[in-house]
Design a protein around this nucleic acid. Structure first.
Lengths: 131, 131
DNA sequence: ACTTTAATGATAATGATTATTAATTAGTAA
DNA sequence: TTACTAATTAATAATCATTATCATTAAAGT
């Protein structure tokens, strides 16, 4: 059960991508990340952005979730939750760790070793709830 | 705020799709639903399956969520949770309504009108946790 | 400086989902 | 029963986010 540690390299591409995600409070898609980073590294390609985002997510350095057939990335790996508006798709953060903690502590699933919980509130944002 | 009620029709395609989802405890993709239903209605197409699945999900008659770039459907709309194995992708059900109830009741989000919660436990199933 | 191999850039390929459109058909009313 | 209307279908093409391929480049250790 010894997992061979593939050593990673801190390329400027990866560093810039990471830095961008940390600087932002949104939940950008790969393309949005690309649009931001390409300003600093004109030669970077979308494929490289995807590669690095997956790499970072696998290492647990960023979060990744799917919505509307797109991956969204989050530089904040602290235990938080999301609200997604069913109408406009806007994603906002909720920082209530007790909700995740409760879920994990109450889970009774003998055949499953839960590492973390994804909690998404589905509903309507202020702007869309009156429609 | 009067939403025009588009009247739907109970086509045999829709009925068979619904019946299949109710008969199963898995979380099939559109293609899996197609493979099952095409045995009874050989002329049905994948596009029709997609159309109906979206239709049923929009009406709240089935649940729908994304995983591994695919939509998964669930004929059970009761408040339950899911466990997804990070390794093999297996999805299993958890029926602990109190977890969802707690999350919804504790949520403090002034600008968001939450209708329901999606709770997904990420980890490893028995078979994969020993690897 | 030299070596190793992870990572990149360029590009093609993949594959789930959606759009289009003419033909059907469920549901309703005559 | 028959006719009517619009929802739905089957067939098919198109979309587009993501992934694969591969020759080249460049981190990071020696």
């Amino acid at each position: 059960m010894i997992k061979k540690q593939v050593k990673t390299r801190n390329t400027i591409q990866r560093i810039k991508i990471m830095k961008y995600l940390k600087s932002v409070k949104t939940h950008p898609t790969a393309e949005m990340v690309y649009n931001a980073v390409v300003k600093e590294i004109p030669s970077i390609t979308l494929a490289t952005v995807y590669r690095n985002l997956h790499n970072l997510a696998n290492k647990g350095k960023i979060l990744m979730f799917e919505f509307n057939k797109e991956y969204h990335f989050d530089g904040d790996t602290c235990n938080h939750q999301h609200c997604i508006c069913k109408k406009c798709g806007k994603i906002t953060d909720v920082f209530q760790e007790e909700i995740s903690k409760y879920a994990l502590s109450k889970l009774r699933a003998d055949n499953f070793d839960a590492k973390c919980v994804t909690i998404i509130f589905n509903g309507f944002c202020r702007k869309c709830s009156g429609v």
